[in-house]
Design a protein around this nucleic acid. Sequence first.
DNA 1: TATGAATGAGTTTTCATTCAT
DNA 2: CATGAATGAAAACTCATTCAT
Lengths: 208, 208, 208, 208
Amino acid sequence: MTDAAPRNPERNEQRRRQILAAAAECFQRRGFHSASMAEISKAAGMSVGHIYHYFENKEAIIRAMVEAKAQEVVDKMDELRRHPDVLAALVEKVDEGMAKQTERASAAMTIEVLAEAARSPGILGTLCESDRVAMAKMKETLIAANPALAADPRLLDGRTNLIAALFDGLAIRALVNPDFDREGLLAALRLTMQTLLREPPAGNGGTR
Amino acid sequence: MTDAAPRNPERNEQRRRQILAAAAECFQRRGFHSASMAEISKAAGMSVGHIYHYFENKEAIIRAMVEAKAQEVVDKMDELRRHPDVLAALVEKVDEGMAKQTERASAAMTIEVLAEAARSPGILGTLCESDRVAMAKMKETLIAANPALAADPRLLDGRTNLIAALFDGLAIRALVNPDFDREGLLAALRLTMQTLLREPPAGNGGTR
Amino acid sequence: MTDAAPRNPERNEQRRRQILAAAAECFQRRGFHSASMAEISKAAGMSVGHIYHYFENKEAIIRAMVEAKAQEVVDKMDELRRHPDVLAALVEKVDEGMAKQTERASAAMTIEVLAEAARSPGILGTLCESDRVAMAKMKETLIAANPALAADPRLLDGRTNLIAALFDGLAIRALVNPDFDREGLLAALRLTMQTLLREPPAGNGGTR
Amino acid sequence: MTDAAPRNPERNEQRRRQILAAAAECFQRRGFHSASMAEISKAAGMSVGHIYHYFENKEAIIRAMVEAKAQEVVDKMDELRRHPDVLAALVEKVDEGMAKQTERASAAMTIEVLAEAARSPGILGTLCESDRVAMAKMKETLIAANPALAADPRLLDGRTNLIAALFDGLAIRALVNPDFDREGLLAALRLTMQTLLREPPAGNGGTR
DNA sequence: TATGAATGAGTTTTCATTCAT
DNA sequence: CATGAATGAAAACTCATTCAT
C-alpha cells in the first residue's frame, strides 16, 4: 500500500521518479485519459499492479507532476533572484522561459494538466496550491527587481498575474500557431516585461 | 446521413445549434471525454442516435464549437475597428475581453478544447485554421489602431501573438487562481496594451 | 402497408425488382447484416421509409431473393429438359453451371443467404421450401436424362443431393480457393456427372 | 495485453480453448454477428474484458477456429494415409466425413465462418491459407491412394477441388434439406469417390 | 405515394483497479 | 517487492423500424 512506510526510502523515490518520467512521456503522447495504466507500466518497465505501490491511483500521478512543475518555477525564481541585477536578468532570461513554454512536449503537458484540473477537484486543488506558492515566489522576485512595486499590493498582484498569464498563454500559442515568429514574439515579450517592471506604480497605468 | 442535403435547412441549423448548446454545457461541466453522448442527447432533448444525423461523431461537435468561437473573435474585431478611435477602443474594451476569458464556464471550455486539440489531429487542424483567420483579423485591427505597426511584419506578428497569448493565458489564470484581483490585472492589461500599440516600431523594443 | 392492394400492380412489381437489385448489390458488397437499409435505399434511389411499402422488413427482402434464385434453377432445368439429348446436355452444360456458381458476386450472395438462413427461421423456411421445389424439378430432369434412375427412389435422391451439394460447394471453393484450375475442375465435374447419370442403378454403386 | 508472453503458457492455452469452446457454441446457436461478447463471456465463465486478454478481438476468435478446423482435416488425412490400403480407406471412411459435415452444429459453424470470411479480409486470409495447407495434404493423400494421379497436376487439382467442393456442399445440404436420405447419398458419394480415385488419368475424363 | 427525422436498444471494446500468487 | 490475471462498468456509435408531413 502507498501509505506503508517504505523499507528503503531512496529506492522508493527512484521508483516514483521512474514512473513519473514514464507517465509524462505517455501523457504527452496520448493525453491523460487515453494513456492507460498498462501503457505507463510498460514505459516504466514494471507491472501495472506495482505502480499502485507507489501511487494511490492515476490521479496521484498527475498531482505529483503538478507539484514537480511548480517546484521548477520556484527554483527558477530563486536562481534569478541571486542575480546581481534582477530586473535585467528577468528581461534577459525571458528567452529561456519562452523556449521552455513553447517546446512542443512541455506545452502539450501543460495543457493536459490544465484540462484534467478543470474536471478533477483533486488535481485542481493541488494545482491551485502549487500556483499559490509559485506566485508568492514570483512576487518576491518582482519586488527584488523593482522595490517600488511592493508599495501597491493590487498593482503587484495584477502585474504578477499578467506575467503568469502571458507565460501560460505561450504554451497555447505554441500549440495553435506553431510557426509564429520567435524573434518577433521575444521582442514583444521583452518590451512588455520592461514596461511591467520599470513603470512607476503611480501614473495612468496604475490602479485607478 | 450527415452528408445528405437537408430538406429543411432552417430546421437543420436550429437542431445543430440546439446540440451545440447542450454539448457546450456538458463539456464545461464534465470535460469532453467524460461527457457521454447519452448525457449530451439528454441535455439536447433528443435521442442519441439522432445527434448522429447532424454531426458525424463526437469530434465533429467540438470542431463546430471551435469554429463558432473563432467567429466570435472575428466579430469582436470587426466591431472594434468600426470605432472612431480604434486604439482607445482596444485599450478601453480590454475589460470586456478579460471578463469573457475569465468567466468560469468559458475558461473551462477553452481549456477543454485545447486539450482535445493536443491529441486529436482533426480538432487541431480546425483550431489552427480558425486561429489563422482570427489572427489575420487581429493584425488588421492593430494596424487600424496604429498604422506604424504595419511597417515591420515581424514586430506586428510578435505583438499580435503576445496579445493572443495574454488572452489565452487569462483563461488559465481564471482556473488556477480564481481569486485574483480583477482591478489590478485590468490595470496591468491596459498598460501592456498601450505599450504594445503605441510604442514606435523603431527602438530597442523592436526586432533586433 | 405491404398488405394493401397496390393501385398499380405493374409499377409495384417494377419497384420491388428495383429494390431487390439494389439490395443484392449491397449484400454482396457488405453482407446482409452490414448492409444498412439506408445504404440499400440510396442504391435503390428511394427513401428508407418507402422500401417498407414494398417489403415488410429486411428479412422479407432476402426471402424474395431466395425465391428468385430457386426460380432460376427451375428455369434452367426446364431448359435442359427441352434438349433432345438431356443426358448429353447435362454433361455438356455443366460449364455454365460452374461458371455461374463460381462467379465471385454470385458465390458471395449464396453464402450470405445461407448464413442468414442458418440463424433466421423465417429465411430458413423459405430456403427449404424453395429447395424442395428445385430438387423435385431436378429429379424430373435426371429421370429425363436416364429413365432407369426412376427405379430406385433412394438412389435418385442420393444422386440428386450429391449433385446439389457439388454445385453448392463450388460457391465455397470460389471463395476459399479462387485460383483453382477451372479446366481441371470442369473435367472432374463432367466425369462425375457422367458417372452419376449413366451408371446402372444396380451394381456396387447402388444402395446396399 | 494479447502480445505479451504469458507467464504460464499452459494455463493460457487452456483459457483459449475454454473461450473457443464457448464461442463455438454461441456462434452455432446465434451466428457470429448475433452472438455478443457478453454472451460468449458468460458461456466461457469469465468476464467480457478478460476475453480480450486472450484474443485481440472478436474476429481473432473466429480466425483461431478456422485454423483449428483446418488442422482437423490435416489430421484426418494423416490418419487415412497410414492405412494399408489408402484408396479403400478413402472410399470406406467417407461415411465419417459425411456424418461430420452434415451434423447440424458443425454445418452451421462452417457456413457461419464462410459468411464472415466473405466480408472480412482478415478471416478470408486465414481461411485461404488454412485451405491451401489442407488441400496440399489432401493431394498427397490422393496420390497415396492412386499414384497415377500424380502424373497430371491439373487433373489432380481438379479432382481434389471437386472432392473438397463436395464435402463443403454437404454442410449446405444438411442445412437446406435436413431430411435427405443418408444411405442414398452415401452410396452416391462412394461411387463418386471410386470414380475420381480409380479412373485412369488418360481418357475422355482428363484435361482436354 | 414518398420522405427522412426520430427513436433507443444493443454492440464491441477499453481501462482503472484489485488481489492471489 | 513484484506480477499480471481478472473484473465489470461505461462509452461511442449503428441501425431497423415508425410515422408525421
